[in-house]
Design a protein around this nucleic acid. Structure first.
Lengths: 254, 254
DNA sequence: CCTTTAATTCGGCGGATGCCGAACTATCGC
DNA sequence: GCGATAGTTCGGCATCCGCCGAATTAAAGG
């Protein structure tokens, strides 16, 4: 049967603990070296090398040589989407009561990158705030930036001009597998993530997809998005006074 | 790491030839019995039973008992989406020149069900026709039914009233892995598929996801959608004279 | 040019799992 | 009830493949 044979190969590649750990790490959006990935997956360099060769050959990841280093990365958004969809099914698979928690888990649940955009409680909270304030419309089947939202995001420093296609095309919903709620993906999501890192609101945590919220980020998200991240009720953004009226512009910093 | 462990399990389940064949068969949208699936996957009943137990336990498929028969089906659209996304990556994985062809392949390429909607050349051609005639807007990131499209589809006999949410929410694009072009999924896609089967335009092929185009279907698609399926240039629908003016109503038949 | 570090290749070990047939259970139709 | 058919469970076989360490290649840098 057409397609089936290769589908098996792809799924089998993901269906191994070491390789899945590698792919999950690369889902952080950063390119990593073989040694780093071997360390993260707790396997020897030689074993990692074998896995990486297979993943490259199957075109799930790509390699960039830089001197004696070889950087690996997810090859395309399509592969990232596939991995997300597997994560999502897997997350729902298991009754929540069985999900063990750890410090590391908590960090990931709080904030992380998902290929090129934000996920976790922070990602969901930002999405909720944008929806509450009428900046975007978000549903499982599609998302859209409103006129007010375009102004607001421009003021935030997100560059939405480059991909000029329809407003809807680049604001995609992504179901968060830890929160099981929607967050913003697509070009809009990528820009929000980029800008948060640029502003120093969030910083990458070494050897992890997790992101750490800085004091600047805490106040920035409060002032600009109406989010109080000290409050355990992260999911209840407050409407901004300025919502829809055009937003204050945040200067570039750092 | 949260999520990773189970993602491995899910992917590993798909990453076996017999199980993938079973899942691919169930992607046809019909519930099938264990014996049928054993036959399709060319394994013994006992082996199939083992595989099916695992798939049920992992909640990728569900079971309905009917007397001494047990019918298996894909458990949710989310699982179907995951399988599609794997198929898509797998299809792109392999350089086209290496794809072997067979009679069976050709039937699948021509027309098939994809969980609950149409795929293959016919699926893509219908989507193209709807776009050409201004009935829907379709892009990789989202789809939408126009006012004219709503009238047209109502005339065709598709029931779009039940799910009353936004027009966009139930017209989802789905990238066809054999054609590598978009076709219509979501509620709209499911209704088009249902109606084509109801009208006897397409019929299911035994033991396959493939669909056979009937003479009625050929004339129906020509008259109502402007498609000439005898023409190898399937992908060039003609604009309908009636497009946008409200469409003729097709009576229920069969 | 020699040391150091990154990465690959190879041989061999060991665990995991897909597979079957035979025995067993469940349900139908007579 | 009894035979027939659908499906499950179990034991055992065979194969696959992930893993490691040691040897090898590649590149950087003194």
């Amino acid at each position: 049967m057409v397609g089936t044979a290769n589908m098996v190969e792809v799924a089998a590649l993901v269906g191994d603990t070491a390789r899945a750990t590698i792919l999950a790490a690369l889902m952080g959006g950063q390119a990593l070296t073989g040694s780093e990935l071997a360390f993260l997956a707790r396997i020897s360099r030689s074993t990692a090398s074998e896995h990486l060769s297979k993943l490259v050959e199957a075109r799930l990841i790509a390699i960039t040589k830089q001197g004696r280093f070889r950087y690996y990365r997810i090859v395309s958004p399509r592969v990232a989407k596939m991995l997300e969809s597997i994560e999502l099914v897997a997350a729902i698979d298991v009754p929540p009561r069985y999900q063990p928690r750890s410090m590391k888990d908590d960090a990931l649940r709080f904030a992380r990158t998902c290929y090129d955009h934000l996920a976790g409680q922070v990602g969901v909270a930002i999405a909720d705030a944008l929806v509450t304030n009428g900046h975007i419309i978000l549903a499982e089947e599609g998302g859209e930036v409103t006129d007010a939202g375009a102004r607001f995001l421009a003021g935030f420093g997100a560059d939405l001009t480059s991909k000029s296609r329809s407003r809807r095309l680049f604001c995609q919903p992504c179901l968060d597998w830890s929160e099981r709620r929607l967050h913003v993906a697509g070009h809009v999501g990528a820009e929000i993530c980029r800008r948060c890192l640029e502003l120093g609101w969030l910083r990458r945590v070494r050897d992890s997809r997790a992101l750490r919220l800085t004091p600047d980020g805490k106040s920035g998200l409060r002032d600009h998005f109406g989010l109080d991240l000290d409050n355990p009720e992260l999911l209840r953004p407050r409407a901004l006074a300025s919502a829809g009226k055009g937003a204050s512009v945040i200067p570039l910093r750092r």
